[in-house]
Design a protein around this nucleic acid. Structure first.
Lengths: 216, 216
DNA sequence: TTATGCCTCACGGAAAACGGGGTATACCAC
DNA sequence: GTGGTATACCCCGTTTTCCGTGAGGCATAA
């Protein structure tokens, strides 16, 4: 009888225990490796996957060293036949979008029932994709949200200026930084305020933070 | 043989499974209830705790309806003999401080080894407190951080003005809102920029967000 | 080829922010 | 009762933001 080879990456030990206890009772699945960072998984695959192909990697998003997003990208670049399932508590549209663009095979939130997790694993090993309803909801909501649309309507230069504004630089300093005229930066600021429908610098700053252009 | 009565609250099903599988092998612990929100736990205790006292409640912080902070407060107010242990991935100093002020008995991060979790449970049931080293680190770092000190150095009025500034109101609008002179608000803004060691509105806005004075 | 969008720069004027003072009352603690 | 702090207010001068408008170059897509 064939048993699928599965690898799990999660830096939450207790969660790992939970996953293991769920999959322990299933002889059709063999956990061949667990790790608390993507780096070890990537290394393992680079060395061993050619000889002993892995069927599925289950991974968290937030991990030290190499997170789930990078791990997924690595796998889909260098080990295309290995399926990936993300299990995470994070639900921001940006992350989900990045993962789907990188050909992730599934995404299940950590608060899902174990039945759903098993269903996801089964589907993916069957060659299908599996995304929980809540993930699809977040994704769609994110894609059609004002913020995202507005963000996409900004040019690269505008984003750059916005970032520097939120970093507390004055117009003159931004101009120096980008080797542009002060007037140019003023134009960008104006356009940003107009495009993003905010009232002033405070609004721009909040927006930049929301979009993750600056920390805090 | 006495078996301690334990209740667990966590809205992450898989994590719950992990915890259960860890505690299943221990006959000295009996899980009498699990829930995905604090509300149910609080209700249960209000009704049954007098007849059948519970020894320990293990709870996550982030939960719908009633979170771990509120649950802990409820328990420590109305069921003082029930011990509480928080197990969460959240590590912000503010949360930890609130919990300790509310007499929580322990705090362990979710990425802890299960040995540490068992040690924490044992210590707490023994009447001791248990906080993981990483939690203590965050707490201390938070208490001695510039941000927290600066925040505490602000008066109520200053916080109020800061909040309105971050909400994109102009000086004049804030003055109208608080029935104060425009000059007064200008003074407050000046003092805030000086006290918080930022350069301009953008800095104030970022600070207000970091301190949770405004959403986003 | 026109059109569209982006990037760049500019002028002018009103409004607001910024920086550095100062005054005054009240309350609380030492 | 002196010092510290929170509160509230004021003046002045400079800088920056905010807002409208316009315009040239440049790439690319219709």
């Amino acid at each position: 009888m064939k048993s699928y080879k599965i690898i799990i990456a999660d830096d939450h030990k207790m969660f790992l225990d939970g996953l293991l206890s769920i999959l322990k009772g299933k002889p059709e699945y063999t956990i061949i490796l667990t790790a608390n960072t993507g780096k070890n998984i990537a290394k393992y695959l680079d060395i061993n996957n050619a000889d002993e192909p892995v069927d599925l990697v289950i991974t968290d998003v937030n991990m030290p060293d190499m997170n789930g997003i990078e791990l997924n990208k690595h796998i889909k670049t260098y080990h295309k036949k290995v399926k990936t399932l993300v299990v995470s508590m994070l639900h921001d549209a940006q992350t989900i979008q990045t993962l789907t663009q990188d050909q992730v095979d599934g995404y299940v939130p950590k608060n899902a029932e174990k039945e759903e997790l098993l269903k996801a694993i089964e589907s993916i090993l069957n060659g299908d994709k599996y995304f929980s309803q809540s993930i699809k909801d977040v994704y769609l909501k994110g894609m059609f949200s004002n913020e995202q649309n507005l963000m996409n309507s900004l040019s690269k230069r505008e984003r750059e200026v916005l970032k520097l504004i939120a970093q507390e630089l004055t117009t003159q300093e931004i101009a120096d930084e980008l080797f542009l005229s002060k007037h140019t930066i003023e134009s960008y600021r104006k356009n940003l305020i107009s495009k993003l429908e905010v009232r002033n610098l405070a609004g721009l700053t909040k927006y930049a933070i929301k979009m993750g252009l600056v920390e805090d």
